[in-house]
């Protein structure tokens, strides 16, 4: 299978007055064509930061550090100028559905006008032609063409989310980063949007990066799952390896799964992870998870565990797993 994306040693630091916040430290992963890779973890673990790094637009004061490499369809995008990125990468090749984007639609413009703006920024197109295309995409996400003349406040959350998804697909990107696309929605609407995304992925032959904190949802959408903790990858494996019989290998993933309440199975006590994620200006030495880990050893406190492939496709960064 061809790789659509290769990320190598990605480091992204936020340079604040108090020092550099090491939001991403040495993150490497691949994404194959037609695949959905899930990024999961607690808030502040670097999921969204990874997403925006792929569009090369870290929010200030963030900076992608020297030595980070991102190959998109075989092309190194770290070497490109901002102008080139705008011209042929951002939204053309990679687009993103931002978290809470549905609440960022301009309240004073009609939906049609907002969508037209995105389109005309990138394509020279007659207004009539553009409107035809907008209507086509609205249809694809299951909305009637009249929505063009409506204002955001007239639409429900689910409808707005469909519009944001349509806008991300306009320019026929190959890769779409979906950052918590269903968090603010009710369960039934969430299930509708997930179904829509699965259909669109087939229709347009897309690859997805699906960011969420909800492991149950991740299990339903992702071919492979990447668990992040404090700016590093803790574990990366196929859906079967993480959620299957054998179960996860990293203590963090293990605990996170146990902390997820299940609807169809009653448990007496839910487990939780004591403490809170660390400060990333001065992260803990060795394994960043060691202060909260229930299987901690002396070595964990001193040396950073490498991300090793334990079985084909299953990578874990834990000293316990190094034989």
């Amino acid at each position: 299978m061809d790789k659509i994306l290769e990320v190598k040693n990605l480091r992204l630091y936020y340079h604040t007055n108090k020092g550099a916040v090491k939001a991403l430290d040495d993150v490497s992963f691949d994404l194959y064509k037609g695949e959905t890779l899930g990024l999961v973890g607690e808030s502040g673990c670097g999921k969204t930061t990874t997403g925006v790094a792929l569009l090369r637009m870290p929010s200030p004061p963030g900076r992608i550090e020297e030595g980070s490499q991102i190959f998109l369809d075989g092309r190194d995008i770290m070497g490109l100028s901002e102008k080139q990125i705008r011209k042929d990468v951002r939204w053309e090749e990679v687009s993103m559905v931002f978290q809470g984007a549905m609440n960022c639609l301009t309240p004073v413009y009609t939906i049609g006008k907002q969508m037209l703006e995105t389109l005309q920024e990138h394509r020279e197109m007659e207004k009539k032609q553009a409107e035809k295309l907008i209507k086509e995409y609205l249809g694809l996400v299951g909305l009637p063409p009249e929505v063009m003349n409506r204002y955001p406040h007239e639409l429900s959350g689910g409808m707005k989310q469909r519009i944001v998804i349509a806008t991300a697909l306009f320019l026929k990107p190959k890769l779409v980063v979906l950052d918590e696309p269903t968090t603010a929605l009710d369960v039934i609407v969430q299930a509708q949007i997930i179904n829509l995304l699965k259909k669109l992925k087939k229709t347009f032959d897309l690859s997805f990066i699906f960011i969420t904190h909800d492991l149950s949802l991740e299990a339903e959408v992702s071919d492979r799952v990447c668990v992040m903790y404090a700016g590093k990858i803790a574990e990366l494996g196929t859906n079967q390896q993480i959620y299957g019989k054998q179960g996860p290998m990293h203590p963090y993933t293990e605990k996170l799964l146990l902390a997820t309440p299940l609807l169809k199975k009653k448990v007496e006590t839910l487990s939780f992870i004591p403490g809170a994620p660390p400060d990333l200006i001065d992260p803990p030495s060795g394994c960043r998870f060691h202060p909260r880990c229930h299987k901690v050893m002396d070595k964990c406190k001193e040396e950073i565990p490498p991300l090793l492939e334990l079985e084909p496709g299953h990578m874990v960064a834990c000293w316990r797993c190094v034989k």
Binding site: Q190, A191, I194, A219, S222, G244, L257, L262
Partner: peptide, 16 residues
């Protein structure tokens, strides 16, 4: 409609 952490759902479009 509530998702569950189990395998084998990725290619399935849930019937609602």
């Amino acid at each position: 409609a509530v998702p569950e952490p189990e395998t084998g759902m990725v290619d399935i479009i849930k019937e609602l």
